[in-house]
Design a protein around this nucleic acid. Structure first.
Lengths: 343, 343
DNA sequence: ATATTGAATGCAAACGTTTGAAAAAATTTA
DNA sequence: TAAATTTTTTCAAACGTTTGCATTCAATAT
């Protein structure tokens, strides 16, 4: 009525003139408690809205049942799919996911990791931010390792770090996409690349380059332009590509957003897709199937990545003493649609 | 080296043969501590990677600095924008956001709320799930109220519940969208409605209906079809609309996804947008500006909603005793693009 | 009547930290 | 050198819960 302090076990004990132990046991259905006592206490507890203080339990048991998920963004389809996958496996096991968005910011990432450790998180799923990548700092990761808190890299990874990781085979996905374009008959394939330095960007780029080489096609620097994954970042680069003296007849975008941005520009120039310009994206985001023309893309099993990452986590905590570090690479799959099907 | 147990203040005290109090004070730069003692302890603490156990502090101070964000999904642009807004304000204040995704599931929502309360979350931002809406249950909310944990509704709300809420003026946004179509000269405006019962769906629907009525246009039931907000859910309904004997010449989608789905179908039928069919969405998601043609839509200030909701939360905890409940309604704004600009 | 059993409850410690008050140690003053 | 003062450190309690062990009390067996 007056005090807003949550009801505690002590409060109930006082009410029943018994000890906190009895109340605790009664609430937990301990067999050594008298049937009547148990019933009375449980009824009263329900009545006054007693709710166990998990904080005290965490302290006592050194278990928090909470996991950190540290990602650069949650604005993309892929990231949310990963989170959903983690959720699917871990929620039923009683874990709470603490989702931290770093906004590609190193300091924020560092702060989040430190906070998660302070809060005694039992595991951390991390997709490192771009700034972290660029800066090359990784002391903030060392402290996670030092604490022996399970650390699982998702998607982006530090090449030289010994932990578990679940990633998608970006390289072969990109390779397949470009090979598809070549097979169809496109001769000049441009690439709207992601930010330099990120594994995803570089792997897809490598797939693009290696495929061109395999088919003995020249890798022209002027056909490779950076974007930041966002739809609007594709506009200027695509214009530049199409206004070249010898413009590309196909564009491989680092993701669907970028490909959709390119699609818009191509149409604005009154060029036909896929006749004049072929287009391929990456992600197989829901919308890619409903653009006009629909977008050929590479599916990335985000949900599966989340589920696999969960498995890696479980392995680490159940691992018999020796910390088992596993690397999982899931295949990506080419999804052929209209934007590349020139006949 | 051997034990993976985190270093505690007691460990350090043992090492320096002093009491935990001294260590605690040394680490917190308490003035009553000898300069040398302080320096030594701080150095050692850093060396062994000591990190304060926030769990114990939470128990002691009854403050967890964590807030719950309970939402049906994070797969849409709007939801992530809201979270970003919350984040922008609350992260600098030291709060941790605990993001819980209910998947529109009542039981999950209930479980999350209960867990958040057990973990002594200091405030909850809630966008109720559709199932909760449908079922009409709200005891799980009662317990939040009973505990006097600040509860702020975002976006979706329970009409008859006394708490703070931050919502977008869906009604007038929808009204403006439809009015725009009418002004341009469209005569038969269909509506791809959201799921029944949800405030957003119903408010936008009401805006649609009232606008038609204002201009003395008939409200035809067969022009109103339900979707579930997802792009694919617009396909069949749009086909049905276009295959009617007297098909609509404009479609107002409950969100951009649905409008984009409709766009695809319209194009497949070789109809021209905006000449044959006008199209308006809702959300002003990034992609809406880059479809072909670009999509007329209604902007929804998600980020702002998050920031306003944060403000409401701050007001509640700073509120002098009497719980001040505020209702904020932010305006939505029509963004006119190509898909409706028939000349 | 006394010893033995069994059921029900209470005690106390533990988790890691902070903090007011008390105590101890060091320094200054008379 | 003793008293007074200042500086530094320790003590003990608190946050809410659980749990092994001890205790109490009644019922049963001897």
């Amino acid at each position: 009525m007056n005090s807003s302090r949550p009801v505690t076990i002590k409060d109930i004990a006082r009410r029943f003139r018994c000890s906190p132990s009895t109340v605790s046991r009664a609430l937990n259905d301990h067999p050594a408690i008298n049937e009547d006592t148990r019933k009375n206490i449980q009824e009263y507890a329900k009545e006054v809205g007693y709710q166990r203080n998990e904080v005290s339990l965490s302290l006592l048991n050194k278990k928090t049942a909470s996991l950190g998920v540290v990602v650069p963004t949650i604005s993309n389809y892929y990231e949310t799919a990963v989170i959903e996958g983690l959720h699917t496996v871990l929620q039923p096991l009683g874990y709470t996911l603490n989702i931290c968005v770093t906004n590609e910011n190193y300091l924020l990432e560092k702060e989040y990791l430190s906070k998660l450790l302070s809060n005694r998180t039992e595991g951390i799923f991390l997709s490192v931010s771009q700034e972290t990548y660029d800066s090359g700092y990784y002391e903030h990761l060392e402290s996670v390792i030092q604490r022996k808190t399970p650390l699982i890299f998702i998607d982006r990874e530090y090449e030289d770090f010994e932990t578990s990781r679940a990633t998608v085979d970006d390289y072969h996905g990109a390779f397949a996409a470009v090979e598809h374009l070549i097979t169809i008959g496109y001769k000049q394939i441009a690439h709207l690349k992601g930010p330099n330095g990120l594994t995803v960007s570089e792997q897809r780029f490598k797939g693009y380059v290696d495929c061109l080489k395999k088919y003995e096609m020249p890798v022209r620097d002027e056909l490779i332009i950076n974007t930041n994954f966002k739809v609007e970042s594709a506009i200027v680069p695509t214009k530049r590509l199409l206004e070249m003296a010898s413009p590309p007849d196909a564009i491989f975008g680092v993701n669907d957003q970028v490909a959709i941005g390119a699609m818009r520009v191509v149409k604005d120039k009154n060029l036909k897709i896929p006749q004049d310009v072929g287009l391929v994206g990456f992600d197989n985001s829901p919308i890619s199937a409903y653009t006009f023309p629909s977008l050929t893309t590479v599916s990335r099993p985000g949900r599966k990545i989340g589920m696999e990452a969960s498995r890696l986590f479980m392995n680490q905590i159940n691992g018999s003493g020796d910390f088992s570090h596993e690397s999982i690479v899931l295949p990506s799959e080419l999804v052929i649609r209209e934007s590349s099907l020139r006949i």
